[in-house]
Amino acid sequence: MAGKIDARLAELGITLPDAPAPAANYVPYVLAGDMLFISGQISAGPDGLIKGCLGGNMDVEGGAKAARQCGIAILAQARAALGGDLDRIVRVVKLGGFVNSTADFTDQPKVINGCSDLMVEVLGDAGRHARAAVSTPSLPLGVAVEIDAVIQVR
Rank of each mutant, 00 (worst) to 15 (best):
G114T: 06
L82P: 04
G127V: 06
V122K: 01
E121T: 10
G83T: 12
G97M: 11
I89M: 03
D104C: 00
I112K: 04
D85Q: 13
V90F: 09
L86C: 13
A103V: 11
R131D: 15
A81T: 15
K94D: 14
D85K: 00
T106G: 08
G84I: 15
V120M: 04
R128V: 11
R128Q: 12
H129R: 04
T106L: 07
F105P: 15
I89K: 02
G84A: 12
R88S: 08
V93T: 08
H129W: 02
D104Q: 10
G127K: 01
G84L: 11
G97W: 07
N113L: 13
V90T: 12
G97Q: 04
L86T: 11
M119Q: 10
G124H: 06
D85S: 05
V122L: 06
L86G: 12
F98M: 14
D104T: 13
L118N: 01
A103N: 13
V111F: 07
R131W: 14
V122Q: 07
R88W: 05
G97A: 08
G127Y: 11
K110R: 10
C115T: 06
C115W: 02
E121K: 00
A81C: 12
D125V: 14
G124C: 15
Q108T: 12
I112A: 04
G114R: 07
D87L: 07
D125H: 06
I112F: 02
V99S: 11
F105C: 09
G114E: 09
V99L: 07
R88N: 14
G124Q: 10
V111H: 01
A103H: 09
V92R: 01
T106I: 00
G96W: 03
L123Y: 01
L95W: 07
A126I: 06
L95T: 15
A81L: 10
T106R: 00
N100L: 01
V99D: 13
I89V: 12
N113I: 04
V111S: 05
I89N: 07
K94T: 09
D85H: 05
I112W: 02
D104W: 10
A81S: 14
V120D: 03
G96M: 03
A80W: 06
I112P: 03
Q108D: 15
V111T: 03
G114A: 09
L82Q: 03
H129M: 12
N100A: 01
L86D: 14
D104P: 05
N100Q: 03
R91D: 11
L123T: 01
N113F: 10
G97L: 07
T106N: 06
I89F: 00
F105D: 05
D125W: 06
G124V: 15
P109F: 04
E121D: 15
E121Y: 00
K94C: 08
D87H: 01
V93G: 14
D87C: 02
V90W: 00
P109S: 02
N100I: 00
D107P: 06
P109I: 03
D125M: 09
S101C: 14
V120G: 07
D125R: 10
R131M: 15
V120K: 02
D117L: 05
F98I: 08
R88C: 12
A130T: 09
D125F: 11
K110N: 13
C115F: 04
V99C: 09
G114H: 08
G124E: 14
A81Q: 08
V93D: 13
M119T: 09
K110E: 11
